[in-house]
Amino acid sequence: MAAIKRSAGLVVMRQFDDQWRCLVLRAYRNWDFPKGQPQPGEEPLQTALRETTEETGLSGLELPWGEDYRETEPYSKGKVARLYLALSRQGDVSLPVSAELGRPEHHESRWTSFDRAQELLPSRFWPILQWAQDVVAAGECLKLPAAGNDT
């Protein structure tokens, strides 16, 4: 049996006009959440935060919903992605050039509704998307200051 290849990332949330949106990224025709492989000795949450900053330019991400996570079922020859739920209150998404690739890792970013994210993302992410939607809805008491549109 092949070893499981683990990655960690974030479902990044932000409010626009009192509506929650999640950040999705596109590489070629594939939509995904910001995520990546851990560095030696790095904990999964550290990986998730580092990779999200590297892939989107967003920093100052918060974890107001705690450090709970969900994982995908194994896919593509044993890959498993662990995703945490984070809040981005400010900052524009940028797609910086990856030093390894010599180009941005992704071609596009979008802040989308949960319904639109489900249309874009592969089905392996649907349970995670539902979990994120449930957690955010249960935590509406957060009532964060609305951000401006940066789509």
Rank of each mutant, 00 (worst) to 15 (best):
E73S: 11
E100D: 15
S88T: 04
L58R: 02
I128H: 01
R26P: 03
W126A: 11
A27R: 12
L49G: 02
Y69H: 11
A147C: 08
S123C: 10
T56M: 01
R21D: 04
R110C: 05
T47E: 05
R70M: 10
D68H: 12
P64L: 03
P34M: 04
D134A: 15
L63P: 02
E105H: 10
Q133A: 10
S94I: 12
Q90P: 05
R6M: 03
E73V: 07
S98L: 02
L121G: 06
P127L: 08
W20A: 05
P64Q: 00
L144I: 11
L23Q: 00
G66A: 07
T112F: 00
L10E: 01
P74N: 08
G102P: 01
S123T: 14
S94R: 13
A137L: 12
S59G: 14
E108T: 11
V97G: 03
A146K: 13
A147F: 02
E140M: 11
Y84F: 15
L58W: 06
G78M: 06
W111I: 03
G36H: 04
A117M: 05
K143R: 15
P74E: 01
L95P: 04
K77I: 13
E43D: 13
D68C: 08
T151N: 15
L85G: 02
P74H: 07
C141G: 13
G91A: 07
F114V: 11
A147N: 05
Q39L: 15
V135K: 09
T56V: 03
L87P: 00
G9I: 05
L95A: 01
L83K: 02
E73R: 08
D150N: 13
N30S: 13
R50W: 07
P104D: 08
E62Q: 15
E105A: 09
L95S: 04
W126T: 11
P145N: 09
M1V: 12
